[in-house]
Amino acid sequence: MEIIRSLSIFILAGLCEIGGGYLIWLWLKDGKPHWFGLMGSIILIAYGVVATWQTANFGRTYATYGGVFIVMALIWAWKVDGFKPDKYDVIGATIALVGVCIIIYAPRHP
C-alpha cells in the first residue's frame, strides 16, 4: 500500500509540474493571457508542496522524481501536444523508470 501511495504522490507532483510549466509555456510562447502564467505559477508552487508528502529523504525523492518526470513528460507530449514517442523514447523512459524504482523502493538495512 505504501508503494501505491508513493506512486500516487509522484504522479500528482508530475501533473503539477508539467501542467504548471505547460501553462507558463503557453503564456510566454503562444501569447496566451497573463492568467495562464499566473495559474501555471500557482500550480508549480503546488508541485513543490506535493513533493514533500513523500516519506523518503529529499535527495532520494527528487532523484526518483526525475525518472517519473521523464515518463510523464513523454505521455503529456503524446496526449496533449500530439508528439509520438518513438521506440528510443520508450526504451529510455523504461530504463529511467526501472532505475528510479530501484533507487526509491530497494530494501535498505540501517
Rank of each mutant, 00 (worst) to 15 (best):
K84D: 08
A51R: 11
G31N: 11
G99L: 02
V49E: 05
E17A: 02
S8W: 00
I9L: 01
A106N: 07
M72I: 14
W35T: 03
G31S: 11
P33Y: 05
L44E: 11
I70C: 13
A73S: 15
T64K: 10
L74S: 09
L23I: 04
I18R: 01
T94A: 13
Y22N: 07
H109P: 00
G20I: 04
W53I: 00
I18S: 01
I45D: 08
T55W: 08
A46V: 08
Y47H: 12
D81T: 07
Y105A: 06
G82Q: 06
A96F: 12
K79F: 12
I9W: 00
A13F: 01
I91G: 04
H109K: 14
W35R: 07
A63G: 12
V98Q: 07
G37V: 05
L12K: 03
W25N: 11
A46T: 03
N57R: 09
V68N: 04
L38C: 03
T55F: 10
H34Q: 10
A96G: 06
G66H: 08
W53C: 02
R60V: 15
A13I: 01
L15G: 13
V68I: 15
A51E: 12
F36D: 08
I102W: 15
W35Y: 15
D89N: 15
F36C: 06
Y65R: 06
L23F: 14
I91H: 09
G66R: 10
H109D: 07
P107H: 14
I91F: 15
D30L: 13
I24K: 06
G19K: 03
M1A: 13
G92S: 14
P85A: 07
V50E: 08
V68T: 06
A73H: 03
G82L: 07
W76N: 03
K29W: 03
L28G: 00
T64E: 04
S41W: 02
W53R: 09
L97Y: 14
S6P: 02
Y105E: 09
M1T: 09
H34R: 11
D89F: 12
Y22R: 04
L23N: 06
V49H: 06
G21T: 12
A56W: 12
K84F: 07
T64D: 02
P85M: 11
F10T: 03
L15N: 03
R108Y: 07
T61G: 00
Y22F: 15
G82F: 05
S6E: 13
V100S: 10
C16H: 01
A13H: 03
A77P: 04
Y62Q: 02
I70D: 01
W27V: 00
P110H: 15
H109T: 12
F36T: 09
A93P: 08
W27H: 11
I45F: 15
A77D: 13
K79E: 11
F10V: 02
M39G: 04
K87T: 14
L38H: 08
K84N: 13
W25Q: 11
L28I: 04
W76K: 02
V100E: 04
T94M: 11
L15Q: 00
Y105M: 08
P107S: 12
V71Y: 04
A77F: 05
K32R: 15
W25H: 14
I3H: 08
G37L: 04
A93F: 04
I42E: 05
P85T: 08
G40I: 03
K79V: 14
Y47M: 01
M72L: 15
V98R: 10
I45G: 10
Y22L: 06
G48R: 05
Y105P: 00
L15M: 13
Y47R: 01
Y88N: 13
W76E: 05
S8H: 00
